[in-house]
């Protein structure tokens, strides 16, 4: 993919500037972690980022963006709606296509929810919902992954599995994380946000937890 160049991004809320101006380049092949305290502007930045690269990005928002009354299968399939004609999509909504089922099943298996294929999202636990949203993003196979706290509801080992899967499937990603260890382990560049500004931007190999901690 091409690099993403962002210049002078700003966001205001209720007339008050809450973010920026921020300039940022995302180079292909980079796994970027956005870190910072709550309310620092990570989600806002991700949202702005998504607006810029929407045509080539898959998004896992904090509120997950799941359709509660549809089964996991359809929610995951929604990642690839654009790849098919509307009639195929319509047919698949009413009558799930075998080809799509086969493609989605292994993904759920890797995420540890293979038995939930036909379960409506509304009945899932928080962690299962989160993995469904991630499955959708993985299934989408876009150029770049944008994820906002994608593993917040997952415990220890599962968080690692999911982070591993994401970095493996997407060559380029920007992930907002509050867990510093995960950030250091799975990302190769870390951007720290504080009071709506970039307070830190460096390669992971040059950072230690103590460099990041002051952001919180």
């Amino acid at each position: 993919m091409d690099a993403v160049h962002l210049r002078n991004l700003t966001a205001a809320y209720g007339g008050q500037q809450v973010l920026g101006p921020i300039s940022l380049d995302i180079r292909p092949g980079e796994h970027i972690a956005l870190v910072g305290g709550s309310g620092a502007g990570k989600s806002t930045l991700l949202g702005l980022l998504y607006d810029q690269v929407r045509d080539r990005a898959a998004l896992v928002p904090q509120e997950q963006g799941l359709v509660q009354s549809l089964p996991v299968f359809h929610n995951v399939y929604m990642g690839r709606l654009a790849a098919h004609s509307r009639w195929y999509n319509l047919l698949n909504l009413v009558w799930p296509r075998r080809r799509e089922l086969r493609a989605i099943e292994p993904l759920l298996e890797k995420l540890g929810i293979p038995d939930k294929l036909r379960t409506p999202v509304a009945t899932l636990s928080g962690g299962q919902k989160q993995r469904t949203a991630i499955a959708r993003a993985l299934f989408q196979e876009a150029e770049i992954l944008l994820a906002d706290e994608p593993v917040s509801a997952l415990d220890g080992p599962l968080a690692h599995v999911v982070m591993g899967l994401m970095t493996e499937s997407y060559a380029t990603s920007v992930v907002a994380l509050h867990d510093i260890d995960l950030a250091l382990r799975y990302c190769d560049r870390i951007i720290g946000i504080q009071n709506g500004q970039i307070a830190l931007d460096d390669m992971t190999r040059r950072l230690t937890p103590s460099d990041i901690l002051p952001l919180y």
Partner: peptide, 27 residues
């Protein structure tokens, strides 16, 4: 909930987006 529509690619046609992201929860 408008978020399911927001995560869809802009290339998704209107009908599919409506049927998948809006209708099921409103139904």
């Amino acid at each position: 909930d408008p978020t399911p529509e927001r995560v869809l690619s802009r290339k998704v046609d209107v009908l599919s987006s409506f049927l998948y992201a809006r209708i099921p929860d409103a139904l």
